[in-house]
Design a protein around this nucleic acid. Sequence first.
RNA 1: GGCCCCGUAGUGUAGCGGUUUACCACGCCUGCCUGUCACGCAGGAGAUCGCCGGUUCAAAUCCGGUCGGGGUCGCCA
Length: 605
Amino acid sequence: MERTNYCGRINQTYLGQDVVLKGWVQRRRDLGGMVFVDLRDREGIVQVVFNEETNEKVLKTAHELHSEDVIEVIGEVAERIDGQKNENLATGSIEVVAKDLKILNAAQTPPFNIAHHEGTSNDLRLKYRYLDLRNERMQRNLMLRHKVTHAIRNFLDKHQFIDIETPYLTKSTPEGARDYLVPSRVHDGKFYALPQSPQILKQLLMASGFDRYYQIVRCFRDEDLRGDRQPEFTQVDLEMSFLSEEEIRNLMEEMLKYVVKQTSGQEIKASFPVMNYDDAMANYGSDKPDIRFEMLLKDVTGVVKNCDFKVFSSTIEQGGAVKGLTVAGGADQFTRKQIDALQEIVSQHGAKGLAWLKVTEEGFSGPIARFFEEEALQSSLMDAMGAEAGDLLLFVADKLQVVHAALGDLRVHLGQMLKLYAPDELAFLWVVNWPLYEYDEEQGRFVASHHPFTRPQAQDIEKLSTNPYDIRAQAYDIVLNGYEVGGGSLRIHERELQEMMLHTLGFSDEEMYQQFGFLLEAMNYGFPPHGGIALGLDRLVMILANEPNIREVIAFPKNGKAADPLTGAPSMVSKDQLDELHLKVTASKEKMVADNVFDFGQEDE
RNA sequence: GGCCCCGUAGUGUAGCGGUUUACCACGCCUGCCUGUCACGCAGGAGAUCGCCGGUUCAAAUCCGGUCGGGGUCGCCA
C-alpha cells in the first residue's frame, strides 16, 4: 500500500480517515491486552494503538515489535479522549487505531539510545552515523541546513548571481593551509590539489564577464580539526564585479537577514555594526568579537605603570601592557577556587598569571590589594576599569598580543558562564580595515593576513615598498556570536599591483610566474574591478541550530583525527594502486596496521 | 608537535589499595498486565574494569608505557 501521510503531520483534520504509515518503531508500550507504538518518520512521531477489538491477529504481531523495526501500519485516525492526550507530542491529541500491521524489516537492538544520544561517545555516534541521524535533533539540523542553502540560492538567484562549478582537481599553490593532494596516474610523480577555496578561479570568472558568481562548494584543508573546523567544509562562495566594498557588504547583509528570516523567523532590523579591526582587538581581544555582551577589555597600562606590584610595572617596562576585565557584581560570585579556574584559561594563551582584585566598599581586597592602597591610584584604576563596589577585576600583564588572546578568551568564557546573553540571540557584525600583512616570525617574512589577492586600501598602496606592516586591506569579515562566519575582500585586478604584492610576500619573479602566471596574464586582458566573500556554511548553520559543534550539522563528519569511523577512511590501498600512481609508501606497515582501528561488519555470534 | 581531561556489561555511570560475588539506571531476555506515552510489576542474562608492564601479601583502584576518544595551544592565507 502506498503511504498516505507522514507520522508527524497527522492532525485533527484527518479524524475518521484511514491512513497508511511507514516508519520506525520508536518505542513499544505493551499493556498485554493492548499495545501502544510510537511510530516515527522524518516529520515526527504518532501513537499507534493495537487492541483486541480492532484486530486480534494484528495485536499478536504488535507484541513482537522491537525498537527500530521498520513497519507499515494501516489504521484510522481517532481523537484521544480527554485525559489521554499528550501535550508533549505534536500529534498528542490524536492516535492511529491500527487495522493492519506489516513488519517490513526487523531491527537488531541499536548500539546506543537513538532518541537520547546525549552522553553517547562521539566515536560511537559516528560509527553508526546512520542511526545517530535518526535522532530528532539531527534530523532537525540537516533540514535546517537544507532550508539555509535553499534560502541562499533563492536570494542569489533573485539578485542575478550565476551558479558555476569549479574543479576539485586543481593546482597546489603555496601560502595558506596544507593541501590535500591527489596523485596523477597519467602524469608520473605529479599531483593535483583539492581546493582550499575556489579563490583564483572565481576571480577568473569575473575576467570572463560573468559579473556575479556563486557556488555552494566543498573546500579542503589538511589542518588539525576543531569544534568549528572540519578538513572538508562547505563555503558559500561569491564574487562580484564593479561593486564597492560597502555595496558588497550591504548585499551580504541583506542576504543573511533573509536567510535568518526564512529559517528561524527572526527579523533582524538594525544594520550590522561595522567595527575596525584595531578596535575589535583593543576592546574585545579578538578579531571576531562576540558582541552579545559588553565587558570590554580596559587598558590600565598607563595607570599601573609605576605601581609597586612588580609583575605589572616590570612587564610595562619591557614594552608589555596591562589590561583587565570588570566582572560586574563578581566579587561575591567568585570563590578563590573559581578564580583559579579562570587562571587556567589565560595560561593556555601563554599568560603567566591572572591578577585579581575584589572591589568592596572599603577598597580593594585580594592578594595584590596591598599594592593598590594609595587612594589616587585606587580611584584612577577604578575609573579606568569602570568599576564599582561589588565588582571583580581581572588583569593580565604581558606582551599585548598575549594579553589580547588571554583576556579575549576569558571574556568569552565569562559571558558563557554568567549567561550574559539569550541563547537564541544572533549578533552579526562586520570587522573591517584589516592589516594587509602579518609578520610571520617562524618564516621570517610577511604573510598575507587574508590572501595574496587582497586589495590594499588606495591611500596605503605607496607603502608597499616602504612599510608593509602599516598597510590596511579592503577586507571584511562577517562575525556572528563570536565566530568568523565569512570573510572577503576587494581584489587586485591590475597586474602591476599584484606583482608588487607578491614581491612583498617574498616571491621571486620566477616563483611568481610559476605559481600565479595564469592569473597575472589574465590581468593583461581587461580584468574588471571585483571583490567577493566566502561564508562558512557549516558554521552559520551550527550557530542558527544553536549547536556547539560543526559536526552536528554535517551528515557524515570526520572525527578529531580527520578519520571517519563509519567507513574507515582513510585506509591503506593495494600495492597495485600505488604502482599505478607511481607512489611508494614509506610509513611502516606496523604503524599503519595499528592505526587501522576500525572494524565492522563482524557479528559476535 | 605541546598541554589538559576521559577509557568499568550493549549505553551512561558508581566504586579510587582488602568488608565487592564490581553499584545503579537505561537497554536486552522471560512472564504478568486493556489507556499507556522514557507505561508498570515480578524474575533473569550480561563486564577477562582499553592494552602491556611495574609496585604490593593484595591493583578496576597506585606508578610507567601504549592505544583510543574529547578539548585546547600551535596550525587553519
